[in-house]
Nucleic acid binder design. Structure first.
Lengths: 150, 150
DNA sequence: CCCATGAACATTGCTTGCTATGTAGTGTAG
DNA sequence: CTACACTACATAGCAAGCAATGTTCATGGG
């Protein structure tokens, strides 16, 4: 008979992938009315914390590859969420600024983010959520290649 | 001064997204030598468990939208991992079968998957990993829309 | 039998992620 | 000052996810 073990169903990597997709789906439906897409969300949160960053700074804060950030920023510019100004001291880089419209929807977006996080952990205790965040952080460290190899 | 709270850095959704990406990156580099891409991995594991499924069956087992599965299966066919045969009783559907080549690399792929999962949880106790999987499962349930709304 | 409904899969078009590569500006060694 | 290396960003090309839509086949009601 040789039944196959259901490796996939208990594979941590698969479960994490699945979870990330349901998170993204929830975010997508809730922020769509504001004209914001899931991939723009981390970049926006980053700019809410601090405005006028260069692309390289945003990449390192959001942990996204540079071409991805370039693409995302262009769409955000297209969608009226950010503008970019050249840096006088360095002709290569430019700073990204939130538009008034982005500032207007900031509170709503942050509220939505918090709401999704909250509904995700419904039924888990404070301690369990704490342990979860710790475990995630440990796993990210474990799987992130050392500085040299990137 | 009005310092912004670093919401992003502690946002569960963002951390999960980040974790999923480092998982995917690790998988990508390790399975690339076998000519397999990350998105094909869940589909392959699914077929390792049971061969000859229809596309719809694979969608529901892997929890992937149907157009995504269609696209992935076409690439897997192109890459010599699967073949498809029509279902005589139903002219609409076809069954997907692993090629000999896919069977040959099965053990290596499963080993790689287990290895990545193991290295991810390095430093966590058995109990912590158990709690983690439980929490992930709870969150997926919490965030998955009810049957009707899909 | 015929038609309507629904199911299975394909297609289109978008976003978001990646790697690899190109281009232009900075800065430094000689 | 010039050449070289490095940095910042852009571009190309691909994979993989989604929603929306089209097409073909199956099936049940009348």
């Amino acid at each position: 008979m040789s039944e196959k073990l259901p490796f996939r169903r208990v594979s941590l990597g698969y479960q994490v992938n699945h979870l990330a997709r349901v998170f993204e789906a929830a975010l997508r439906t809730q922020i769509a009315p504001f004209g914001v897409a899931p991939g723009q969300f981390p970049a926006l949160l980053c700019l809410f914390e601090e405005d006028g960053l260069t692309q390289a700074e945003m990449c390192s804060r959001v942990q996204i590859a540079q071409p991805t950030m370039a693409h995302t920023l262009r769409r955000m510019e297209r969608d009226g969420l950010v503008t970019r100004t050249p840096v006088p001291e360095d002709g290569r880089s430019s700073r990204t600024w939130l538009t008034d419209h982005a500032r207007e929807i900031e509170d709503d977006l942050v509220r939505i983010g918090r709401g999704i996080n909250a509904s995700a952990v419904t039924g888990l205790s404070e301690a369990e959520v704490e342990a979860l965040l710790t475990s995630i952080s440990v796993m990210i460290d474990n799987l992130t290649p050392p500085e040299g190899a990137r």
